[in-house]
Every structure is written in C-alpha cells, then in structure tokens.
Design a protein around this nucleic acid. Structure first.
Length: 236
DNA sequence: AAAGCCGCCAACCGCCGTACT
DNA sequence: AAGTACGGCGGTTGGCGGCTT
C-alpha cells in the first residue's frame, strides 16, 4: 500500500516510494554488521538507491529491534491522550514513554483516531461540568465498566513503572485525581475479573490482525523474519 | 456490481537544532 | 564567528482497502 506498487526515481537516481523486501534485507543486514554511524553515507555503502533520511525512517519505524507491532492497547491510548494534553504534538516525546512505539505511528494514531476522541471528551466534559458530575465518565468515557477502568489503570501503572520518575509522578498524580482510581486496586482484585490476565492486563487488541492483505509485503514473510531477527538480536 | 467516499498509514518534505570544521 | 553536514522532528501527502450508496 502507500506509495504505489511501483517505486519511482527522482532526478538524482534516488528511489522513492514503498520499500521492497530486498531493500529491507539489505538495510537490516548492513546495520546488523556495521551499525549506522552515518545515515547519509549508509545507502551507498549498503547498496541502496535511497536517501539517508529514507533509510533512517525505514529503520526507525519498521525494522529496528524491539518495535511493537499490532494495535494499541487501551492503556497506550490513554497515555497518548494524557501526554498530548500535557505536551501537545511532541510525538517523539510521547513515543519515548511508550517502549516499542514510534513517533510516526503515534502521530498517525492521533490523527486517525485519538484526535476525534479527544474532541469528544472535551465536549462531554464541558457538558458534564454544566450538568451533574458523574465520576469516571469525565475522563474515561471509553470504558463502560469499573472492571475496564481497573484494568486500564493497572496496566497504565505497569507501563509507568518503566518510565522516568518525573513522568511517573505527574501521571500518577493525574490518575490519583480520577474519581475511581485507588492504589489499593491490586492484581489480586483484578484476578477476580473475567478475562484478566497478569501478563496482559489490558483490554487486549493486539491480536487483532491489521487490515493489510496477506500478500502485502509489509505484513508478510520478511516482516516475520525481521521480528525473528529482533528477538534474536535484542537491543543492539 | 460499480462508483464514490473515507479512513488508515507508510513515506516524503521542509525546517530546526546540534556538532564539527 | 560563520559555514556546513547531519540527525531528528512534525506536518503533510497520496495510494490502498473497506464501506456506503
């Protein structure tokens, strides 16, 4: 998908458009052995007809190790919404707080889904202020049951624990202001909830397949190979 | 069934900050 | 201090697929 089935070349012979499997392999294997000390020189050294920026983008967003693929969890979306409230369009800053997610993906998610949701929340919260105050609904409109909220908050805490101390502090204080948030909600409480799994405390949407077609390269065989490589190599 | 519309998302582009000479 | 190279960031584009009419 994306930049057309056939890539084009610009006046300088630099290739543009969607990346092919072969190009990805070249890039991955080059970086695997040489690293990326200089992005501008890398394409030439790796035998790629791409510009350095394009290589960097491809690597950072799709090929590097420890990237999370699949849909965003409810907690991740919550974090993005909260951080966007605090920092605005600082996508790289937001991405730092979500291990495995990239600024580009977060930006896309924001424009495609969260922006609308954020607006809806603002609307509903402003109308809530006029009317009766009704607890969680101001800030957690998406989650209909208390169990959902508990899952989200707990999952969020797990993610926050791996984040920086100052972020942990600001976000937990935000959470503490939620009507239904209670630090005493533990995993043992959660364990009694249907569908709760300690390893996946979220409302898990990750297993949902993407809309990409099977034959499409980006969801295809090489990607699996890349993930294998990522698992194998770890963070290098 | 076909056409048009819309949402998603990979990739491009331009700008800015930093490091180096 | 000025110029240049480079990396990184955020805005935007444009094609594909799914949905609606």
């Amino acid at each position: 998908m994306v930049r057309g089935p056939s890539s084009s070349f610009d006046a300088n012979g630099v290739k543009k458009g969607a990346w092919s499997e072969e190009e990805d392999q070249k890039l991955v294997s080059f970086i695997q052995t040489h690293g990326h000390p200089n992005w501008r020189k890398l394409p030439k050294l790796a035998g790629l007809a791409r510009c350095g920026k394009s290589c960097r983008l491809r690597w950072m967003n799709y090929l590097r190790p420890n990237l999370k693929c699949g849909n965003y969890t409810a907690q991740e979306e919550e974090i993005i919404l909260k951080l966007h409230e605090q920092h605005g369009n600082k996508w790289s800053l937001i991405a730092e707080k979500l291990p495995g997610r990239t600024d580009n993906h977060i930006k896309n998610l924001w424009h495609s889904q969260l922006k609308r949701r954020s607006r809806d929340r603002e609307k509903s919260s402003s109308s809530e202020v006029k009317g009766k105050k009704s607890g969680r609904q101001n800030n957690m409109t998406k989650y209909s049951s208390e169990a959902d909220t508990v899952k989200v908050v707990n999952g969020l805490s797990n993610i926050l624990e791996s984040s920086s101390p100052e972020f942990m502090e600001t976000t937990t204080s935000t959470l503490a202001s939620q009507d239904n948030y209670s630090p005493s909600l533990t995993t043992s409480t959660l364990a009694s909830q249907d569908n709760y799994s300690p390893s996946s405390p979220s409302i898990d949407t990750e297993s949902t397949p993407t809309k990409n077609s099977p034959e499409e390269y980006n969801s295809g065989a090489l990607r699996k190979e890349v993930y294998k490589f990522q698992e194998f190599s770890g963070d290098f």
